[in-house]
Amino acid sequence: MSEKKTNRRDFLFTATYAVGAVGVGATVWPMIDQMNPDASVKALASTEVDVSSLTPGKTITVLWRGKPVFIRRRTEDEIADARSVKLDDLKDPEKDEDRAKNPEWLVMLGVCTHLGCVPLNDKGDYNGWFCPCHGSHYDTSGRIRKGPAPTNMEVPKYEFVNANTIKIG
């Protein structure tokens, strides 16, 4: 009898604790989730850029989701340069053909993959980009060649809406 009573009591207390814990969890979640991107931020996912004024060898930087995006119209030499590199020489092997579907246009996030600085244009040992913060060198395809950055600069989702307009995101 007394044993049964103990069991029942244990069950009651365990159940109370368990149900209480669920409630605490459910209450804490909204307080955490409120810091995630809100509906209005999520809605601003894409931006359209007019690139008609870009001549070969020039780069423009546009803002997308609060980050700089480099849009470069590459010269023939740069394309040849980028395409001739052997994959074995790369820290993060990736073909230029995969990074720039249309070889003339390179679109990528202008964010160094090391710690997030914005690399400088037309600088560095590989005539591409150079990050002044910690000395990462990128080639004409935005791939990491030398320095602490672990990966190539990221290519966002983008498409040509028409010959002169790129839609990023």
Partner: peptide, 10 residues
């Protein structure tokens, strides 16, 4: 009230 996750609740 509209956009923040659970903002209305908080």
């Amino acid at each position: 009230m509209r956009d923040v996750n659970y903002g209305w609740l908080i």
